[in-house]
Nucleic acid binder design. Structure first.
Lengths: 345, 345
DNA sequence: CAAAATATTGTTAGCGCTAACATTTTATTG
DNA sequence: CAATAAAATGTTAGCGCTAACAATATTTTG
């Protein structure tokens, strides 16, 4: 099966290769009649550009780097599926690269993506999205990038998030409305702003319902199952146990489920448990975990849209905050790990 | 930061570009003195080839396609980490693509990887590794590929697996040695040969220890959590309940844990539970699941080694079965989901 | 209507590297 | 030592496409 080249289209259309190239790249400098004729022929002949040739001849590689920390595999997996699907339809390839907690290695990884692989843009997942050195490097090298749920340098790049504060407020308020009076929280990783927003949303929901928050009801986790185990043990050993525990992600919530079962507590009769993210894990254990659905696949698609949309050649100007901030909708997902009043779900 | 080109090395070494190219590609037709001089300069100048240029000028893209079905995200994630790490060090890029259960779409995906992306090789994870149409297409197009745990056309390509039969035999025998007398099995997806091997190993361990296998102790699953839930419900509703359940993968084992807890059974006091694969899930629930560790990361590395090692230009000959079959070591991983005699662990 | 401006299309050169062939150097043979 | 063969190195052309500039066609302006 021999691949169709630009030249084949040019010959058939009776125009130069450069005109075909202009049509394929949506260059405005092509007449409507020519454009239509070339497009038709290209479609009929199933023309697909050779990306190596494009890369060599131009300033674009058609690669998008996705940099993540694989410890949070459940979150990453879901994002990745969305990213792959989107790239399939837009002629880009995802180059997935793993960052580590070792900051210098992460910088080296990013440099490799910029200088060797020559990605057209980068998507940074948390916690990479919050490393100042990374952000500074990308800005100084004028690399296009999108961050997911960042909490620093919010004008440095486009970013995509959900309203973590509002989601946490609502899910906590839902617990309150469903009769819970002693609600504990396991805070996520301190290096992530989402952790603080979720915590603040939790606090404010309790305050606005005039509920007390005993200090021993607040535990610090780091989004890992292990940190969730430790936190849950302390919470479920209290004399005055919480009747609900809101953990900042599904993995820590799963750990709370585990500890509750170890202590022969009934979930949700003795303690309701709520997570965050709605990863596969939330529905791979019993009881299925109530959580907040982050539209990770949509976020991935949007990130790729942003990076693959041609930039209008306008004078460099401080971009409006509002045009760089993309807040997507979350959903409360109430399942069997929490007591939910049937009338309100 | 300007990238070093082949020509820069050639000028500094006082040789032609072609000689530098030969050195970088380990072509034997270079004198030792020349080779050493060029290598030294290339290292000092941190030369890294432009892959787009290489791809355009030669028959290689330096892409490796990895085709998987994302339903089994835990297994895929682990394999992917190994693959990414290996590729980082060998100048290749992984192009991850998702297959679906829809066979025609999968073929289209593979064709795209072959004809458009022009991958140098493909890695097929189960169950893609067992689709005859895919194997036939790759063979007929003379595409280099490696399969993971295939059960069809074993001479069609290199393949990598563990001894599923032996692993299942050993883990079952371990359950027997630890006092279990009524051991049930949830078979994996019938479309995968590993399922049959694990089942056969289980059967043979029981037979060689003169233990009866009531027919109601065998359940058919499909590697998903949901199929595990259904199977476990039936097994744990039996009057004569099994005292151990060996599920063909971790996800189904997790489902058995869930059902046991739903029924207020104690794991492992009332029923030991064993999975297979040792994915992250096995240690993200309570109790942590006993399982067989598949060295997924090593498998990934080996697959990439096979695909990236230059082929010796020998006459086409039916390759020896033994040189295409790569069997890696597994490990029994006994954790809290099963009753384990301390003296024997 | 002619000149100027704008839009469209085509030509040229080259991106960084390597396949294929040519030339030079070195080793082997008689 | 000369001739031949093999090894090493160099030259040429081009992979498929696009940036930059040139040429041509069309539209606008006075």
């Amino acid at each position: 099966m021999s691949k169709v080249k630009l030249q084949d289209i040019a010959i058939k259309a009776g125009v130069s290769m450069m005109t075909v190239s202009r049509v394929m790249n949506n260059d405005p400098k092509v007449g409507a009649k020519t454009r239509e004729k070339v497009s038709k022929i290209a479609n009929e002949m199933h023309y697909k550009p050779n990306i190596a040739a494009r890369h060599l001849a131009s300033s674009r590689s058609y690669f998008i780097g996705l940099v993540c920390e694989y410890a949070n595999y459940s979150y990453v997996s879901k994002f990745l599926v969305g990213a792959l699907r989107k790239c399939r339809t837009s002629g880009y390839h995802i180059i997935l690269d793993e960052a580590t907690s070792h900051r210098e290695k992460t910088i080296a990884t990013i440099k490799d993506l910029i200088y060797v692989t020559k990605v057209d843009g980068l998507i940074l997942l948390p916690p990479i999205s919050n490393i100042p050195e990374v952000v500074d490097l990308l800005v100084s090298e004028n690399i296009d990038f999108v961050r997911i749920a960042p909490d620093i340098n919010l004008t440095a790049s486009h970013y995509i998030c959900i309203d973590d504060y509002q989601a946490a407020f609502e899910v906590t308020e839902k617990l309150i409305l469903n009769g819970h009076k002693r609600i504990a929280h396991i805070i996520g990783s301190p290096s992530q702003g989402a952790s603080r927003m979720r915590y603040q949303g939790y606090l404010d929901a309790l305050r606005s319902n005039q509920l007390m928050i005993p200090p021993e009801y607040i535990e610090q986790g780091d989004f890992t199952y292990k940190s969730g185990l430790d936190a849950a043990k302390r919470l479920l050993e209290l004399t005055n146990k919480p009747d609900a525990i809101f953990a900042a992600n599904d993995e820590m919530a799963a750990a709370v489920v585990s500890v509750a079962h170890m202590k022969h507590l009934d979930v949700p009769e003795d303690v309701s448990i709520v997570g965050f993210d709605d990863t596969e894990l939330a529905t791979t254990i019993w009881p299925n975990i109530s959580t907040v659905t982050q539209p990770l696949e949509e976020m991935a698609e949007l990130a790729i849209d942003i990076l693959t949309t041609p930039k209008t050649p306008s004078p460099p100007k401080k971009p409006k905050m509002s045009s760089m901030r993309h807040v997507l909708e979350y959903q409360l997902q109430l399942r069997d790990s929490s007591k939910n009043n049937v009338n309100l779900t």
